[in-house]
């Protein structure tokens, strides 16, 4: 078998970024499976794409815009009704310890 396209450390890293808690057995299983997928996709590298523009979207259309007009929102009650945890006004999530909002 050719060298795997992805190693165990990379799978652990991706799992961590995706907040997935995997068992050792799963990590091993996914490493093999993801490796096979990447190997298959690598077939594309057999094509010479040096003269092909990167595709931003598969549909040949652009500028799907809408007017800046207000549509009715859900309102608080409907919004939180299916939340796993709520106090009726907010979504409740496990206490955030670190202030590290993304951007």
């Amino acid at each position: 078998m050719a060298q795997n396209k992805i190693d165990i450390e990379q799978v652990k890293q991706v799992a961590k970024l995706a907040r997935l808690d995997l068992t050792e057995a799963e990590i091993s299983q996914f490493t093999t499976q993801l490796g096979a997928i990447l190997e298959y996709v690598e077939k594309l590298n057999q094509l010479d794409t040096s003269k092909v523009e990167p595709l931003a979207h598969c549909l040949p259309i652009n500028n799907c815009l809408r007017a800046d007009e207000v549509k009715e929102s859900l309102g608080t009650d409907k919004t939180v009704t299916n939340a796993p945890q709520t106090d009726g006004r907010f979504f409740l999530v496990p206490r955030i310890l670190e202030e590290s909002g993304g951007f």
């Binding site: 549509k71 859900l74 608080t76 919004t79």
Partner: peptide, 19 residues
């Protein structure tokens, strides 16, 4: 199309898209 609102009731100006 949710209206931009400052100091509204929490989670009142949301819809399936922005959720």
């Amino acid at each position: 199309g949710c209206e931009l609102a400052f100091a509204e009731d929490p989670n009142s100006r949301v819809c399936p898209t922005c959720l």
